[in-house]
Amino acid sequence: MCTSITLQTADCYFGRTLDLTCSFGERVVITPRNYGFRFLRQRPLDHHYAMIGMASVWNNYPLYAEAVNEKGLYMAGLNFPGNACYPESSQPGKTDVSPPELIPWILGRCETAAQAKELLGRVNPIGIPIAEELPLSPLHWHVADADGSFVAEPLEGGMRIYDNPVGVLTNNPTFEFHLTNLNRYMHLTPHAPENRFATQLNLNQFGEGMGGIGLPGDSSSTSRFVKAAFHKLNSVCGDGEQASVSQFFHVLDAVSMVRGSVVTKGGEQDITTYACCINGRTGVYYYKTYENSQITAVGLFREELDGGELREFPLVTEQRIRFEN
């Protein structure tokens, strides 16, 4: 389970929580412009836009969970079990791309979300893993830049593309349901509520925050979508980079999972293994992990981007605490 959001302040920020029961070997990975991407059904991509994101590295191949390229285009894959449909054969007029290849295939060649939307509309997410030991994960994708965002869902019948005016994506059900479901919460407000229960009664609020009574508090994907949308769309941010990054993580904190609060059918405990925030203009990737709440940053443009070798940054997972005495 995961939550992906965008947030516009002076710059545009993208990021997500990744909720799992365990680590998947993730680390921050920078792919420079001349790293050679190989694809199962498409021509190699030897020269492309550089990118930074969280990935596990298999056989020197970055399997990105999310990333931003040097042009400020963001793409994240989120769990979509039961709905994701990967055809096992080619489709007429479509481009075969295996799902784990989609993020580098799109970010390597597209500058804008508009370009990515056009390409993804012609993609056939073919159900062939890139290796036998790497089974396909059921995914849908959140794609965004400074001008807006959209969702790509591989459903039965083909890839569906939806404009995303909310700038939020979680998991099941489909994105259409999440948008419709927001209508149930149109009465919520960050302001003091008015008495609409009965005008003949003298009803008044007895504490702050009562305009938000009814905002979901559980960790289901439908509730996280509503909660993230409410906090993001009502967000008031201070000036400067630090204020924007801090505000972004506060929004993600509202939908993060505490160990023990979500137990899977197999008896395992879901946690927010990491949360990230990426400045699309500067290419700085900020993250914190479940074990370490201090923010760590890695800068895309602090590296030599014309090389051909991956640059990997293992996560700082031990809690860092600053003492003042």
Rank of each mutant, 00 (worst) to 15 (best):
K265Y: 00
F248G: 00
Y286K: 03
V255P: 09
G240C: 12
Y285L: 14
F249E: 02
N234W: 04
T289P: 11
N292R: 06
C237M: 10
Q294C: 08
Y287Q: 07
D270Q: 11
E268N: 09
G238F: 13
G283F: 04
V284L: 06
V284F: 01
T273Q: 09
V262P: 00
S261H: 11
C237P: 05
G260F: 08
T296K: 09
T273R: 11
Q269Y: 09
G240I: 12
Y290F: 14
N234F: 04
G280K: 01
V236R: 14
S244C: 07
F249D: 02
C237W: 07
G280L: 14
V245N: 02
Y290L: 05
A275I: 01
T264F: 01
N279H: 04
E241C: 13
L252M: 13
T264K: 00
G267M: 02
V236C: 08
T272M: 02
N234R: 03
M257F: 15
V263G: 00
V258W: 11
Q242F: 08
K265I: 00
G267D: 01
Y286H: 15
G267K: 00
M257P: 03
K288I: 07
S235C: 11
I278E: 02
T289K: 11
A275F: 02
G238H: 13
D253C: 02
N234C: 01
Y285D: 08
S261Q: 10
R281H: 12
Y285R: 07
Q269E: 14
T289F: 11
E241D: 15
A254C: 15
H250W: 01
K265N: 04
G283T: 04
V262L: 06
S235K: 08
R259V: 13
G266Q: 13
R281A: 15
F249C: 01
F248I: 00
T289S: 13
S261A: 10
S256N: 10
V255E: 07
L252P: 05
C277F: 05
E268C: 03
T272A: 01
V284Q: 10
S246N: 13
R281K: 15
G280M: 13
T272E: 03
G260R: 06
N292H: 07
V255D: 10
Q247F: 00
Q247K: 13
N234K: 04
Y285V: 07
D253E: 13
G238Q: 13
K288P: 08
L252G: 05
V255M: 09
L252Q: 04
C277G: 06
T272P: 03
C237I: 15
T289Y: 11
S246H: 12
N292Q: 08
I278C: 07
S244A: 15
Y285K: 07
C237H: 10
N234E: 03
G283Q: 03
V251L: 12
Y290H: 12
G267P: 00
M257Y: 15
K265Q: 05
I278G: 01
C277P: 05
Q247N: 12
G266S: 12
T296Q: 11
F249L: 01
T289W: 12
S256W: 04
K265A: 07
V251I: 15
E268A: 10
V236E: 13
N234G: 03
A254F: 09
S235L: 08
R259G: 14
V262W: 05
